[in-house]
């Protein structure tokens, strides 16, 4: 699979996809590098071409907790789309990473200049957020934990 046909980019119509990719530059990161930190300025975002990224939260007095991993085709970062443009989480490359990198102010400007493109990008990012919210709520259920039915089993 390629990022052109899967993941976040698949949510965009071909014309919007091309327009977004025209703003991208290809980057690579070695395993272990930190891509951004919580509360840092969200001035970039990425679409993962290959490799894996861990999203984490710093918990004072405890080790940093990995809360989700992202892989090929997935959008890395959405805080750049909403004020105050600060990262909600940290991110670390778990393996060698290839990605399409975007300058967030340029993409936001393109969204303003072309409302159709802007709507498509916002819609695509909203889908990502909704999917991750749903996944988070599912995990809140602690489905694999001990059952609480009280049945004699």
């Amino acid at each position: 699979m390629t990022t052109e046909a899967s993941g976040f980019l698949a949510t965009l119509a071909p014309a919007h996809r091309s327009r977004l990719l025209a703003l991208a530059r290809e980057v690579s990161f070695p395993a272990g590098v930190r891509l951004f930190e919580e509360d840092g300025r969200a001035d970039r975002f990425w679409i993962v071409r290959s490799g894996s990224v861990a999203l984490d939260i710093h918990v004072p007095g405890r080790r940093t907790a990995v809360v989700e991993t992202l892989g090929e085709g997935e959008l890395l970062g959405w805080s750049w789309l909403f004020e105050p443009y600060r990262w909600h989480l940290g991110a670390r490359a778990r393996s060698a990473l290839l990605a399409a990198e975007f300058d967030a102010p340029k993409v936001r400007e393109a969204c303003v200049q072309d409302p159709g493109f802007g709507l498509a990008v916002n819609h695509g990012v909203a889908q990502v957020i909704a999917r991750r919210l749903k996944a988070t709520r599912t995990r809140l259920l602690d489905l694999y934990g001990p059952p609480d039915t009280g049945a004699a089993r």
Binding site: A54, V67, R139
Partner: peptide
């Protein structure tokens, strides 16, 4: 995940990708 875990973190549906 714990510190030794090298696999994915998230719900199983994310693996469908």
């Amino acid at each position: 995940a714990d510190e030794r875990w090298q696999g994915d973190v998230g719900v199983v549906t994310t693996l469908l990708d």
